[in-house]
Design a binder for these strands. Structure first.
Lengths: 212, 212
DNA sequence: ATTGGGCTACGCAGATATGCGTATTTTCAG
DNA sequence: CTGAAAATACGCATATCTGCGTAGCCCAAT
């Protein structure tokens, strides 16, 4: 560790910011070169010549949040790596942050150890996403209307799948060896049970519940 | 680090296994208590009394792969934490592994530093997923048929959205101040451009491309 | 100036879905 | 055994979609 890592700290809560500073100052390999209370201040510091290797940005900040700041930084000061920090466990936020070019992403309940690792990795040009981030990405996927889905009988679920695939009653009837009228009945029962507007609603439901 | 972390190593390629052993033996805080060439051997070792804190399992193994082994281990030897290692960057695999109870997940192109961190964290009861894993989870999400989507004109896209929401031609016509027949024409053009089977296909396409 | 694409609109026949009933058989739990 | 729920099936009127054609208007590119 021949050279300290130059770091910029941004969080709108002064107490939090000072707390981070205190923690980070215990790490002998980082040097805090600036503090900001919002994205706008981060940009100002950069404009005035401050050159951190890593910017630790809170997402929730007034005036200009961490994501907006990221966009500007990546456009005008590409070399500055960014670690985003947030309280929100949101998949969409992570997704967007990665698209905007952040190198690291942590939730605020992380450990100092992890923060330290993240700073080192990111300064070295790597990316760093905490395990909690990965778990969040996995968890937020499912959104099943299980209660509604439970309303349907087996046969109805079967027919729902086929309808959602674009088959007509006649085709479904042939495939299941039942009368197309029966298929009609089932389809209509399903539409009423789920209270959706016709076939379009059925397909939407099926897709959302990963039936197809 | 008062006590070494007891580790079990499983990989079907002897060379790889020995390589890992060599690397891990350089870490003063791990002690390798066993080696296995497949999941079955891992179970045998556990049955014969070997008690690692952490099992480092390759996913790709003959006879019994890492995932299958995980299920058995978690059922019969719950205290043994598992780190899964694989060459495959597959979201589904990560998902399944987490469901089966692994504590860590790494791709084989990882650094020794990361492996070392992973072992420590997992032994401490945490979870550890490498940044590459997080990125894989993000990347594999999008599946847009952008080329197909580009085929559609603005107006068509607009109508596609409304159709997918379950509105009839008449309703759409009223909303856009055009004749329902025009809506028909657009809808049919879209169906042919995308080559999908009717409304069901349209809705599927719309959902997949996040138009709704 | 001509061409081409997109948007608009209409007609018409046949297919399909939708709404509302009715009814028989099967299945399964009380 | 008995009643409820599910699965099966049919009828019928109406609404809607689908396929195939035609056609005028506007605008941008050639």
């Amino acid at each position: 560790m021949e050279q300290k890592i130059k770091l910029l700290l941004a969080d709108d809560h002064q107490l939090v910011r000072k707390g981070f500073r205190a923690l980070l100052e215990e790490l002998e390999f980082v040097e805090i070169v600036g503090e900001a209370a919002n994205g706008r201040e981060v940009i100002s510091l950069l404009r005035s010549g401050v050159r951190p290797q890593v910017a630790l940005l809170d997402y929730e900040m007034p005036v200009m949040n961490g994501l907006e700041a990221t966009v500007e930084i990546k456009r005008d000061y590409f070399g500055v790596k960014i670690i985003m920090l947030t309280m929100l466990q949101s998949k969409e936020l992570v997704q967007e942050a990665v698209e905007k070019g952040v190198s690291g992403f942590l939730f605020k309940n992380t450990s100092l150890e992890e923060l330290s690792d993240a700073i080192r990795r990111v300064a070295a040009g790597d990316t760093y996403f905490s395990s909690e981030v990965a778990l969040t990405l996995l968890k937020q996927a499912p959104n099943p209307d299980t209660p509604l889905l439970a309303l349907l009988s087996e046969r109805e679920t079967e027919i729902l799948k086929l309808v959602a695939q674009g088959l007509s009653s006649a085709e479904i009837g042939r495939q299941l060896f039942i009368s197309p009228r029966t298929v009609d009945t089932h389809r209509n029962n399903i539409i009423h049970k789920l209270d959706v507007p016709g076939i379009a609603g059925l397909v939407q439901f099926a897709v959302r519940n990963k039936l197809i």
